[in-house]
């Protein structure tokens, strides 16, 4: 069973709808006990980084997620803000610490991209790197749906599962052993997005 982590940020229903459509067993999980019962975790999220971390810290979920992922090696997939939360820190409205599950930081497009509208919103190409298993069976590049103003800059080249061009080439997907992330929304990216969930489920 995949646990979709509910920490008060974003549209969990669309992720659940996608998994249910694929007949993948899933449950929206809210506390530590429920998280432990799940075989795999999805960390979704829409909204601001700082508020998301506050919610995770206040409910004690950040320690639980770190323990389950780093010690118990439970697979996790972070989506959009959920991917950004996996990193060390973000500069969104001040500097905030993240979950530090993957090395890297979250930066603002506005600092480097001058001739494109922000947020980066719409369908854009994702070019798969390092033979990432999350993209198994999907041709590369393929386009996926993005909505975000901040982007992930990973420290280690081997953690990069995909890159996308939006004035700069940024890291649009993470794969580090059993730890995964997508900056785009698989639940809003039609058949190829659904394929990502299938791949994550069949790990």
């Amino acid at each position: 069973m995949i646990g979709i982590i509910n920490y008060g940020m974003g549209n969990l229903a669309s992720v659940r709808n996608a998994l249910e459509h694929l007949s993948i067993p899933c449950k929206i999980v809210t506390d530590a006990t429920e998280l432990r019962e799940a075989d795999k975790l999805i960390l979704p999220g829409v909204g601001a980084f700082g508020m998301a971390m506050d919610n995770l810290n206040r409910s004690g979920l950040s320690d639980e997620i770190r323990e389950l992922v780093l010690v118990k090696k439970k697979p996790i997939l972070g989506i959009c803000l959920g991917m950004q939360l996996l990193l060390d820190q973000s500069v969104e409205h001040g500097v905030h610490n993240g979950l530090s599950i993957v090395n890297g930081e979250v930066l603002f497009f506005g600092e480097v991209v001058k001739d494109q509208p922000i947020p980066h919103m719409g369908w854009n190409d994702v070019e798969v790197k390092n033979n990432a298993v999350l993209f198994n069976g999907i041709e590369s590049p393929s386009s996926y749906y993005f909505v975000h103003s901040y982007y992930c800059a990973l420290k280690r080249h081997e953690d990069v599962a995909a890159v996308t061009d939006y004035g700069i080439n940024f890291h649009s997907s993470i794969e580090s052993g059993h730890i995964f992330g997508c900056q785009f929304h698989p639940e809003k990216s039609q058949q190829k997005g659904l394929c990502i969930f299938k791949n994550f489920n069949s790990l």
Binding site: A13, S14, N17, A18, E20, E187, K188, Q191, G193, L194
Partner: peptide, 8 residues
């Protein structure tokens, strides 16, 4: 609709 449509 959102149960069967996986796009924005």
């Amino acid at each position: 609709i959102s149960k069967i449509c996986f796009m924005p």
